[in-house]
Design a binder for these strands. Sequence first.
DNA 1: AGTACCACCTGACGGC
DNA 2: TGCCGTCAGGTGGTAC
Length: 265
Amino acid sequence: MPELPDVEIFRRYLARTALHQTVTRTRVENPKVLEGTSPAGLGRKLKSRRFTGTRRHGKHLFVEIDGEEWLRLHFGMTGFLKYHKDPDVGSPHPRVQFFFTNGYRLEFDNQRLLGTVEVVDDIKPTLTRLKLGPDALAISADDFIQAYQNRRGGIKSGLMNQRVMAGIGNIYADEVLFQAGIHPLTPVRGLPGEKLKDLHRVLGKVLKTAIDRRADPGRFPDSFLIPRRKEGESCPGCGGKVRKIRVQNRGTYLCPACQPKPSKT
DNA sequence: AGTACCACCTGACGGC
DNA sequence: TGCCGTCAGGTGGTAC
């Protein structure tokens, strides 16, 4: 689930629930998701401290701890957050839990254990260490064009490369390329500047729309491809059949009519 | 620089 | 029913 729009929704969720709450204790159900600390170490870092702010960069969520350190949450392929009243039935895979003085708890659910919970001193050096490019929602048209115009390889791989730009994954790469009418295997070099500029505009529009719709495909506009990610579904643009191919070994959905394959030169 | 392939994990689904 | 391969919205390392 978690690409940029999903993580932005998680950020807002945390900001209206666990923010400003004081942690009484933490509980680590599975230490595999911890990075650079132990369950006891995480507890020491958070006990009696408050969450004081939130930030997001790409697919990473940062939660400020008393204005001193930051909790970095990365969700992998299956993560989400849930805020409960303590005795309530929780989420199915609460790998890490944060308990608060108000009797609520925040759960970091992560079924496949591909996510990460880490405490860091500061955000900037962390983005450098993780080699993340600019955030896909914040990047300017000029920076976008600069980042892509001299790249080799296919456009979908480029969009998903977190070092070039952070936040786009398999699903939203397909959506952006569908909305822009570009075939996923199009060489970036084959895209004129005007087309890149258009792609940047579409990127922003897709992300903002998805966030407005709470990153919930059930609420997406009829013009979106995401709710029709199935071989043989009808294309929202032309009514033709949606096709599935593999790009970078990832299932990739497109409309061959609306996204013509680039002609070889 | 970019890609292919494997690994890390759990779980759902379709075919036999 | 049960087993098995495949696939899943992420990412890092290694080899070419």
